[in-house]
Amino acid sequence: MEVTPNASSKKKMSDNTKSSIFLSPALILLLIFFLTPMLLTIVFSFTNLALTGSQAQNIKFVGFDNFIQMFNDAQLYNSIGKTLLFVLFSAILGQCLLGFLIAFLMKGKNAAFRRAIGITVIAAWVTPEIVVGFSWVAFLGDNGTLNSIITALSGIEPIAFLFEYPMVSVVLANIWRGTAFSMMAFQAALDDIPLEVEEAAVMDGASRWRIVRNITIPIVKGTITTNLMLVTLQTLGVFTLIYAMTGGGPGNATMTLPVYMYQQAFVSYQLGYGTAISLVILIIGALFSLLYMRFLKVKV
């Protein structure tokens, strides 16, 4: 930080003191709104806290009961599986890959084209999640746009996408909504690649694919890791979209961990068990982050 002549004249405060003053509101905010709920979550996951019934009045520490229950809970394993599937297809393969592709194809194209595509993709991203959910329900419904088109073109009966292909439906909706984020991140990274490097490669006779693999990707590797991590963590926590589109069903076909957590906490009234599940989500998120950092060997 640069010190202005005025301030340095009399009593010169050390930079440390100054930064702690300016950081303190942020720190207090973090303490109150971030750390406290997190600690409470950990505490509650060791209790039998319930929303109603006699347990609501007599909260007891139950040790590892919730976690033991989890080990025997087939639905939890099912939910972990669904969550991983959802993250793999909608975040990693969908959003990241598609985002990269769009950003790559837009590189160096004329401004009007870039703007038109950019606005279209970003429109989905700025739309509130619940609105996206309802739009997709309307789009995929029996009398929805997609079925109208299919029926008009082929004459076959409407397909109940949300019931016959529930996971595919929520994955598509999440890709549609989230791709813009990856696209923007990659756009910024790709624009930073010096043109000369690529030109030199072209001069050397490298194929397009070779350039992407050996030049573009290594240069934007940092962005890829950061983006993968952000998108994965974001997708792990997706609740509204799935809840609005399928409610976790039909059956338990789209019961990802956040939906299952909500169901346990607010439908079955088992707040203690629900918070314990939230810790599982946290652990999975941490594992993903570690994996990315290790395999892509990037310092974040």
Binding site: G53, G249, P250, G251, A253, V267, S268
Partner: peptide
């Protein structure tokens, strides 16, 4: 505990109705 049992009834009925 009826409200909790009731949730399981709903799970069972939906699972059968949806063919799961």
């Amino acid at each position: 505990l009826y409200p909790n049992v009731s949730i399981e009834i709903q799970n069972a009925v939906e699972a059968v109705a949806s063919g799961a």
